[in-house]
Nucleic acid binder design. Structure first.
Length: 458
RNA sequence: GAGGUUGUAGCUCAGUUGGUUAGAGCGCUAGAUUGUGGUUCUAGAGGUCGAGGGUUCGAGACCCUUCAUCCUCCCCA
């Protein structure tokens, strides 16, 4: 038999890692709840047609499709063969595959809103923390199965939502100890105005894809790519002028006004940015919101303000969260005029940041608080009973599974990072006492069994 | 989809131009220590050298195939 393995790009999470991940999830969840968002879960799989065509041509290729069951049914062989021929031509055929693993949380959410619009109270604020799957080639920080943490508000055009989402970023990252993250902000309307200035709205996608890479490949390569994508020299010069805007937020806003302020979309976009910057309610903010006109974000359904949270410069991790506003989330599912705005946290990267900066709190590692030693048949029963009364008080305990030398039981406690051991041996049994030892300090004390429940095992 | 890297003990890795019986550290088990962990010392277990084929008197090493892995590009979180 060959060694067992797991599919490419997937991971097992051992106890310690799960604890750390849950710490992140719980922190994010508690903030979402604090801001009035409600939980939503959708199935791991969706109908293939729900997902196809929503993520662009590349995206479609990365959707994991699920093979239909029953293809080996002899009566249907002929049909299955014909259908498979079509699959070989790159088509999707219901006879072969009609379901797929979900690719993100946004489209299933849109599908849910479209299906349940009659029952929902708008604006609908939901958060969703679930795994998604992509048939991408795995590499550093990229997996085929990973979790997304999204919060969206749909059914509201108010920029108050943007202000709230900015505060959510701040609150989550401060709670996690990543106070020196950077929140960058831009507006798709400004990018649209830039495209307009460069001769056509149809250029917008080309422009955003190219300038989104600026910090990765540099201005020269971006210009190259723009040329490759069919922009002429004059247009590229305009874009370069746009990308060269620097200064503090106020200076940037003044400069952008001279460039695209005369265009309707442009001035609207600038206005929205000013609103968010000027009304930001974050108290004692350590790192201010940075207007970054080079921020583009790949997803094309964004139409307004866009966000990107960057890890502290010290860790070179890049983006740890992102989001933005969209005008029409559910139009593809037959429900028009449903605007919304949402953000997302990149849990795997946040994990790496916390690990690298050693920001996980000490308490994350401890599961069991107290280990009861097993020093004999009668001793273990007394220990069991004492343990149960501690458990009834909410103290996390376990009893060593079999009689063994103390040496071994100590090592077990140490490995499991258990802070306290309770020793009940033959002497303690006679006296109705127990020895409690703090493994971190090495201090131990003897006490009456009855007093054990008064002890604080912290 | 394109290109590259690495596969040797549970883990991290040595292993010379191809040469006897494949090593180290950590971990594991036992003992020194019959009621006190972390330190130390001693002993022990543990390998189809990723898999299959080839070259050779002889392959962990060279060649081919295959699988896995990690990384880069495209794209994305």
């Amino acid at each position: 038999m060959s060694k067992p393995s797991i599919p490419q790009g997937t991971r097992d999470f051992g106890p310690e890692v799960v604890r750390k991940r849950q710490y992140i999830f719980n922190t994010i969840r508690s903030v979402f709840e604090l801001y009035g968002f409600q939980p939503l879960e959708t199935p791991a799989m969706e109908n293939l047609e729900t997902l196809m065509g929503k993520y662009g041509e590349e995206g479609d290729k990365l959707i994991f499709r699920i093979l239909n069951n029953g293809l080996d049914n002899t009566g249907k062989h002929q049909q299955a063969r014909e259908d498979f021929e079509k699959v070989l031509e790159g088509k999707n055929v219901k006879g072969i595959t009609e379901r797929a693993l979900k690719y993100d949380l946004t489209i299933p959410f849109a599908r849910y809103v479209a299906m349940n619009q009659g029952q929902l109270t708008f604006p609908f604020k939901r958060y969703q923390i679930q795994p998604v799957w992509r048939a991408d080639r795995p590499q550093r920080g990229r997996y085929r199965e990973f979790y997304q943490c999204d919060a969206d508000v749909v059914g509201s055009k108010s920029l108050l939502n943007e202000l709230e989402l900015v505060n959510i970023y701040e609150e989550v990252f401060v709670k996690l100890g990543i106070a020196d993250y950077e929140l960058r902000i831009n507006n798709r309307k400004i990018l649209a105005a830039l495209a307009e200035l460069c001769g056509g709205a149809d250029k917008m996608i080309d422009i955003t894809i190219a300038i989104d890479k600026l910090d990765k490949i540099g201005i020269d390569k971006v210009k190259e790519e723009l040329a490759q994508r069919g922009l002429n020299e004059e247009q590229i010069t305009t874009i370069e002028k746009y990308l060269n805007i620097t200064g503090n937020n106020r200076e940037k806003l003044e400069l952008i006004k001279t460039l695209i302020g005369h265009l309707e979309t442009g001035s609207k976009g600038i206005e929205e940015l000013e609103y968010v910057i000027n009304n930001n309610q974050i108290q004692n903010q350590r790192s201010p919101i940075i207007i970054d006109f080079t921020l583009a974000r790949g997803l094309n359904y964004y139409t307004g303000i866009i966000f990107e949270a960057k890890a502290p410069p010290a860790v070179k991790m890049g983006s740890i969260g992102g989001g933005g506003r969209y005008d029409d989330l559910t139009g593809l599912f037959g429900v028009p005029n449903m605007p919304g705005v949402g953000i997302s946290f990149g849990v795997d990267r946040i994990y790496d940041v916390l690990e690298e900066l050693k920001l996980f709190p000490e308490g994350v590692y401890t599961g069991t608080q107290v280990l009861f030693f097993n020093l004999g048949p009668a001793e273990s029963i007394t220990a069991f009973s004492a343990m149960q009364s501690l458990r009834n008080q909410g103290v996390r305990c376990e009893l060593y599974h079999e009689q063994a030398k103390m040496d071994k039981q100590f090592k077990y406690a140490e490995k499991k990072n258990i802070g306290f051991v309770v020793i009940i041996g033959s002497q303690e049994l006679l006296n109705n006492t127990a020895v409690v030892k703090n493994l971190k300090t090495g201090v131990q004390e003897s006490m009456a069994l009855a007093n054990l429940s008064n002890k604080l095992f912290i």
